[in-house]
Design a protein around this nucleic acid. Structure first.
Lengths: 263, 263
DNA sequence: CACGCTCAGATCGTAGAACAATCCATCGCT
DNA sequence: AGCGATGGATTGTTCTACGATCTGAGCGTG
């Protein structure tokens, strides 16, 4: 009495494996075949095109404001205020809230509203625990370092150096995070990259609480460059150990700074 | 012109660090202090209590139906049908859809609806890539094997044996997945455990497509027990290598079975 | 016959109003 | 001062409505 839902089982229409029409070449069987031809490229383009959905765009805006520090951790995001400010419907706004809540940036409390997530010391430890596993794991199963991926590392540390020269410590932090994002990309796994991206976004919530961004980001610029040198030189194992030490140091430092704020 | 949103910055109310009222003992400072007293226990209970939110319960129901195989991968889930069947509002249903889409069980296509996710061979490879990193990583940073966590491993393999005796291969698969969930729990990280849980749920979508569940799950019952023996004996490094071999074997096997179906 | 176009039906995306449920702060009572 | 009741404010959920988009059928043309 619950199972006979009339859901149309139109598998043929729901699968991206449907390029029929006008093309004389038969492209069927593309589900199992995943050559790196035009298929992957089109898949990437599609993500750019149908990036519509007002709710997602609203989520993008709110995410940016949160990571900018406009909405500090702990603040409540009123439905009515944001609804009026953004000129959207309540439903749409709530959908955007859901999206961000699942990314860990917002926290949903029943009948109380949504709050910008305020992380605990335990959260920080947990974030570093999983980052250790993911980022070091990305290096571990690595025989050779692929050249295109190294480019991402290099641009990140260059950006960090440049921002440090300008004493723009917030930008240094962003560049450092992009560096770690590039490390995750080395894994070649979409899900690893996506997970690390989300984790770094959460970590940014901690950075926003701590007062001095320089103390937070500057010490690691040199270390990241050293790590890059190791990787570019092919010393994957050495890089992994250096990364491990980085995590130990950064976690200790961040916990201390965080405890100082919450005193 | 966009920044002066009147959001009430009531940090004091949004933090769980607020147990005032009737208790003469001062409990402040609980943010940094995470003793394993009644605090942790209450936190766990609260998760059970405010598990309301119709949308989340709807998501639970749908998730169960999907993993049961009632909604096969590729099928479209009509808003109207489910709305009528479940007797809920469209908005609530859409919120549930969002939840499951973020878990990777559903796929949202703009203006087309939601579909039960149909994974590709590339997805399978990616799933095993990140599982390798996470589960092996859970074992890597492990000095001693904590006794309570070993319990979870044992109950899982016992359940698998028992289900295998009944020739209930679907239950064997469930038990095997719980075994790997227990491995993830060894990491002690909430996020690692949660990630693996989500990944296993995705993987179940693949299992549903493959015809023969016995061929899929039976070969690994013995291997899991061997792995448990290694862990219980304290040979963490040996267990990690065995786990690595398991992933190689299982991925190859699953890809072959999956390619056979999509032929 | 194949191909491309137009149109109508169906479904989704978003908006807006409405009511119930819940929470929070204030007030009044003992 | 402590405690319980009351009212306002906010969220949770439902309902209705309309524009936007996709899908498939029908038609016309080469």
């Amino acid at each position: 009495m619950f199972y006979d839902l009339s859901v149309t089982n139109d598998v043929t229409g729901g699968v991206p494996n449907d390029v029929t029409g006008g093309v004389p070449n038969d492209v069927t069987g593309g589900v199992s075949g995943d050559g790196t031809g035009w298929g992957a490229r089109l898949a990437g383009d599609r993500a750019l095109l149908d990036r519509g959905s007002t709710a997602e765009r609203v989520a993008d805006i709110l995410r940016e404001r949160i990571t900018e520090g406009v909405f500090r951790p702990g603040t409540r995001l009123s439905e009515e205020s944001l609804r009026d400010a953004l000129g959207i419907s309540r439903n749409t706004l709530r959908e955007a809230f859901r999206l961000l809540a699942h990314e860990g940036l917002l926290e949903h409390q029943l009948n109380r509203g949504v709050f910008v997530r305020l992380l605990t010391s335990a959260d920080i430890r947990d974030l570093y625990a999983i980052r250790r596993i993911l980022e070091c794991g990305a290096l571990r199963n690595l025989d050779a370092v692929p050249t295109p991926a190294v480019e991402g590392l290099k641009t990140a540390i260059d950006a960090a150096d440049e921002a440090a020269a300008r004493a723009d410590w917030s930008a240094v932090g962003t560049a450092n995070m992009r560096f770690h994002q590039a490390i995750a990309d080395l894994s070649g796994s979409r899900r690893v990259a996506e997970s690390v991206r989300a984790l770094l976004a959460e970590l940014r919530l901690v950075f926003l609480v701590v007062a001095d961004p320089r103390q937070l980001h500057e010490p690691y610029v040199a270390g990241n460059r050293a790590l890059y040198t190791l990787l570019a030189g092919g010393d994957v194992r050495g890089a992994e150990e250096a990364l491990q030490r980085y995590f130990d140091e950064a976690e200790k430092q961040l916990l201390a700074a965080y405890a100082a704020v919450n005193a």
